[in-house]
């Protein structure tokens, strides 16, 4: 247990060290980088993704995965846009979009939790299917022309220089932190992720927990989709396409185990900071978007590969140390006899 704790600490320490290096490089590249405005702006540009990453942390710790989040984001954005185009009041359209997201999440959760299908297959179907529903709604059009209060939703400074969406993310992070690390539900998320069978035999209602998590994932993804539609000001069929890669990378780079049962929100917070700053730095260096995505892809692989290699190396080192001790002991016994 102690060794595990130390490994997690060292992982977070490593993230912090890389973050400092990235921040120093960025400051040298552009002095404006450290300004509060740039830092807020850097969050704003990915605010939707990092919100969804919070729920994804719960889902992955619980031993599942949700590949459909980006499609739910796109669907929610399309629902808002299409309803608005039909003349429905925008507030009502937003509520319908959130409900649609909740429904998508419940749909995923039902098949995973109560039918027992692998979440990888179910949410892969959801990833294609929900995007398909969005395409049916919006076809190949682009819908924009939202009222001003919507397009500035979440972006105008609310408290000091901090805009609404950033404050919303902050409170969601605090809420998620308390739930995951200081509540009974949070413990259950770890227990089920560590060993679902043991949890079930101990009387935990595993299906209800999983259904709840997938519902939350759908709802937050829909909320993020609405905020994305507001920030972009126009919605198309491919809105939020491919976001799942970034979101899952943020969670796994934060030290959350893909096999479930381990990881912390603190680590995810650090990895979010790291990825945002890295992307910001690459933008400052005029690196194009697809190269940035490629770099994030490499980070995703390295974030799992490096700990594995370190683990193998340490095992080998420990075994060698043990052998050395045994040899020494045998020499001593032979010398004494």
């Amino acid at each position: 247990m102690n060794a595990k704790l130390r490994r997690l600490l060292s992982w977070e320490g490593l993230l912090l060290a890389i973050l400092l290096v990235v921040a120093t490089l960025n400051t040298n590249l552009a002095p404006a980088y450290l300004s509060l405005n740039n830092q807020i702006n850097l969050f704003q540009l990915s605010i939707e993704k990092i919100m969804v990453a919070l729920v994804m942390t719960f889902i992955i710790i619980n031993g599942e995965i949700d590949l459909s989040v980006a499609s739910i984001m796109g669907l929610a954005a399309c629902v808002v846009a299409v309803l608005f185009e039909q003349g429905v009041p925008l507030v009502a359209a937003i509520v319908v979009a959130l409900l649609a997201g909740l429904l998508c999440g419940a749909f995923n959760g039902f098949w995973v939790a109560y039918v027992g299908l692998p979440s990888l297959a179910v949410t892969l179907a959801g990833m294609i299917g929900f995007r398909g529903i969005a395409r049916i709604l919006i076809e190949d059009r682009s819908i924009g022309g939202f009222p001003a209060w919507f397009t500035t939703l979440g972006q105008q400074p609310l408290l000091g220089p901090f805009p609404f969406s950033l404050l919303l993310f902050g409170s969601l992070f605090a809420l998620a932190f308390v739930i995951l690390h200081y509540s009974g539900v949070g413990r259950l998320v770890y227990v089920v992720g560590h060993n679902a069978a043991v949890a079930r035999y101990s009387g935990v209602d595993v299906p209800r927990l999983k259904l709840g998590l997938f519902c939350a994932s759908g709802l937050i993804a829909a909320l993020a989709g609405v905020l994305l539609a507001a920030r972009l000001g126009a919605v198309r069929g491919n809105t939020a396409d491919g976001f799942e890669l970034d979101i899952i990378t943020m969670v796994l780079l934060g030290g959350v185990s893909i096999f479930g049962g381990a990881g912390t929100l603190g680590g995810v917070g650090l990895s979010i900071l790291l990825i945002l700053n890295l992307r910001n730095g690459m933008s400052l260096m005029n690196v194009t978007g697809n190269v940035q995505t490629g770099v994030v892809g490499m980070l995703l692989i390295l974030s799992v590969l490096l700990p594995n290699l370190a683990h193998v190396a340490r095992d080998r080192w420990q075994r060698r140390a043990m052998q050395r001790k045994e040899v020494q002991a045998s020499i001593e016994t032979s010398a004494s006899s």
Binding site: L117, A121, V122, A125, G126, M127, G129, G132
Partner: peptide, 15 residues
């Protein structure tokens, strides 16, 4: 545009 939605449904039904 219905193609993707049908594909998703088909995968789910198959699984």
């Amino acid at each position: 545009f219905w193609r993707d939605a049908l594909l998703g449904l088909l995968i789910l039904l198959a699984v």
